[in-house]
Every structure is written in structure tokens, then in C-alpha cells.
């Protein structure tokens, strides 16, 4: 006897639930929890991470992120406006910049600017924060330029025409009318860029940083080396999550709200 489509879908779903629960139970029974706990989440080592992981490492990660974001936003806006310019060389310059920095891995850019330039020129970075944050913001600006350009292009053409017909110059119309509207559109994607930047700062640890400028990832790695235990990395991962989860939730909230407003 044939069963109906909906019944078949229902049985399939039950089967998947049952299999999932079974898989979890089997894994729980097979794993040696004591050993795993000792290697990856040893309470004494967890306690030793504090307060330095927050007062120094997390603080450095935040500083790198904010410097990278601020620089990325300013240069990103500049390159977005250049890409939208009626002057061709500006468009070419911006497009070239964006393609180059989006096409090269951040790690390579960090090494090239952080180490390569000092080696090539004999000049040295005056500040270890800038050594990491400037390459980071150069790459971030390439991504943000595209986000900002999309935001500006999403503002209806009539807005610029209305502003110009009132006698506003192009820059004045951009600043007063277009960019404020574009910013609303791009806040969710820019927040996403911010989350990506938080995680990307971990790559800065490849530059030989001083004890004072260690970021979270480097702090966790050095902790692993000194304690011969994975716990410091787990703790560092949890601190990253504590920073990124609220932001991704915020983005989800903003997108829901924008969707509701758009109806």
C-alpha cells in the first residue's frame, strides 16, 4: 500500500531526528571526557589566562580592529567615491587598488608591508599597532569601498537630481543627501565587515609583536606553548565569540527590521 507524500515526509523527518540523537549518544560514549577535558579545558589553566587575556590580549584585538575599521572606512569611502567619479583616471585608480587588495591574501599583504617595506627601505614602523593596523585597513578599505559603492548606488537617482535642482553642488549633495541614506543601507554589511576584521586581526600575530601588543590569537598560541595544553586557545576562541556573537545577532536584527520596514 502506497503511503501519501506528506506521511512519507513525516517519517523521513522522524528518522533523521532518531539518527541524529543516536550519533550524539555514540560520540558521547566513545570520547574519553576526562582526557579531553584535561587537554583542552583545564580549569587551573583557564584561570591563569585571566585577567591578562582581557586586559591585554582582547584589548589589543579591539585596538587593531578599531584602527583597521576606521582606516578602512575612510579609505573605503574615498575609493568608493573615486569609483563613482566621472573622471576616468580616478575610476581606474580605484578599481586597480580594489582588485589588487582583494586579490592578495591578507597574510601576504601583512608580511609584505610589515616586514618587506622595512627590509627594502631601512625604514622601520614607529609603532607596532600601526604595523599591523595599516596593512589591515588597506585590505579592509578595498572590501568596504565595494560595499559603500553599492550603498550609494542603491540610493534612487532622483535624490541626486532633486538635490542638484535645488542648487546643491555635487559634493554638497553627496554629503547632505546621498551618503546619509547610503549609510543606512550599508550599516548591516559594514557590521559584518567589522566581524570579519575582528577575526582577521588574528593574522597580525605573524608579525613579531611585543608582549604588550599581543592579540588574542597570539596570546592563545603562546599560552599553548608555555603550558603544553590546548586550553588557552579554547579560551581565546571563547573570547572571540563573546565579541562576534553579539554583533552577528545585531546584524540579523537589523536585517529583520529592514525587511519589515521594506514591506
Amino acid at each position: 500500500m502506497a503511503i501519501s507524500k506528506r506521511k512519507r515526509a513525516m517519517y523521513t523527518r522522524y528518522a533523521i531526528y532518531a539518527l541524529s540523537i543516536l550519533a550524539i549518544v555514540v560520540m558521547t560514549l566513545l570520547v574519553d571526557w576526562t582526557r579531553l577535558g584535561n587537554a583542552m579545558f583545564k580549569w587551573e589553566i583557564v584561570k591563569k589566562q585571566f585577567p591578562d587575556i582581557l586586559t591585554s590580549a582582547a584589548k589589543n584585538t579591539v585596538v587593531f580592529t578599531i584602527l583597521g575599521f576606521a582606516g578602512g572606512l575612510s579609505f573605503g569611502l574615498l575609493f568608493a567615491l573615486m569609483r563613482l567619479s566621472s573622471i576616468r583616471p580616478y575610476r581606474w585608480l580605484a578599481a586597480t587598488y580594489i582588485e589588487i587588495f582583494r586579490g592578495i591574501p591578507l597574510l601576504v599583504t601583512l608580511l609584505a608591508l610589515g616586514f618587506g617595506i622595512p627590509i627594502a627601505t631601512g625604514w622601520s614602523w614607529p609603532n607596532p599597532y600601526l604595523q599591523g593596523a595599516i596593512p589591515l585597513s588597506l585590505v579592509a578599505s578595498a572590501y568596504m569601498a565595494e560595499t559603500i559603492r553599492a550603498g550609494i548606488e542603491a540610493v534612487p537617482k532622483g535624490q541626486m537630481e532633486a538635490a542638484r535642482s535645488l542648487g546643491m553642488s555635487y559634493p554638497r549633495a553627496m554629503i547632505t543627501i546621498i551618503i546619509p541614506q547610503a549609510l543606512r543601507i550599508i550599516v548591516p554589511p559594514l557590521t559584518n565587515e567589522f566581524v570579519l576584521l575582528i577575526k582577521d586581526t588574528s593574522l597580525i600575530s605573524v608579525l613579531g609583536v611585543t608582549a604588550a601588543t599581543k592579540d588574542l590569537a597570539r596570546f592563545g598560541r603562546d599560552g599553548v606553548n608555555s603550558s603544553a595544553n590546548a586550553t588557552p586557545l579554547i579560551v581565546a576562541g571563547l573570547v572571540y565569540l563573546a565579541m562576534t556573537l553579539p554583533l552577528t545577532q545585531l546584524v540579523a536584527y537589523m536585517e529583520r527590521r529592514a525587511k519589515a520596514a521594506g514591506k
Binding site: 534612487p156 532622483g158 535624490q159 537630481e161 532633486a162 538635490a163 543627501i177 546619509p180 541614506q181 543606512r184
Partner: peptide, 10 residues
Amino acid sequence: VFQQFNLFPH
């Protein structure tokens, strides 16, 4: 004055 008004929504 435009067909689509073009008021500044913000």
C-alpha cells in the same frame, strides 16, 4: 518638481 516627488526620506 518631479513626477516621483524625490523628497529626502531621511
